[in-house]
Amino acid sequence: MSTTEWTSDELRRIGGATELQIASYRPDGTLRPYVTIWAVAAAGGIEVRSAHGADNPWFRRALVSGRGRIQAGGVERDVTFARLDAGDAAQADVDAAYHAKYDRYGPAIVGAVTGEHATHVTLRLDLA
């Protein structure tokens, strides 16, 4: 758990942004290029999921690095990446938040980041 909490304004702004830019840090401390993904504010934090599973390059790099930087809704912050356990009760909140925010794009698209198959690729973004 992060020692610094997201503010309600940051949660609102990031949660309200359609897309989030995410990048991990390389071992030498430089930032990789940003990748555009979907993100939700759920369970009191910011969560992201890999739409293309655990082999998605940004997701693999985030796990290896453990830290990165995000931009969304006018907020830019350094974060750490913490894998949310598939059985964590917060997974239902993450699913609900993805549906509420992105269902307008259709079931095939939002289905890539919701449901049981997506729980193993859920990352919680904590402030670094």
Results as ranks from 00 to 15, higher is better:
I70M: 12
V121G: 06
Y102V: 00
I37T: 04
A89D: 13
E10F: 08
D95P: 03
D126R: 03
I109N: 08
D28N: 09
L63V: 15
F81M: 10
A42W: 00
D103P: 01
D28P: 05
Y98T: 02
I22P: 04
T36N: 14
E116H: 12
A51V: 05
I14L: 07
E76Q: 10
A128G: 05
R61P: 03
L31E: 03
G73K: 02
R60C: 09
I70C: 12
W38N: 05
R124Y: 03
L20D: 07
A72G: 07
G115R: 06
H117A: 15
T80E: 15
I14T: 05
V35G: 08
D93E: 12
E47N: 15
G16H: 03
A41K: 04
Q71Y: 10
D78E: 15
I109F: 12
R12M: 07
V64P: 00
L20H: 07
R67S: 07
H117I: 12
A39P: 12
V64K: 10
A72Y: 08
E5K: 15
V110Q: 01
R32E: 05
Y34M: 11
A97R: 09
Q71R: 13
R69E: 14
K101T: 05
R83G: 02
G111I: 00
G29L: 11
T36H: 14
S65W: 10
Q91C: 08
R26H: 12
R49V: 00
A96M: 13
E5N: 14
A72E: 07
A97L: 12
A42E: 01
T122S: 11
I22F: 03
R124T: 03
Y25I: 15
Y25N: 04
V94M: 11
R32Q: 04
V48F: 04
R60D: 11
G115S: 04
R67E: 10
R83Y: 03
D78G: 14
A96C: 10
G68S: 08
T4Q: 15
D88V: 00
G53M: 05
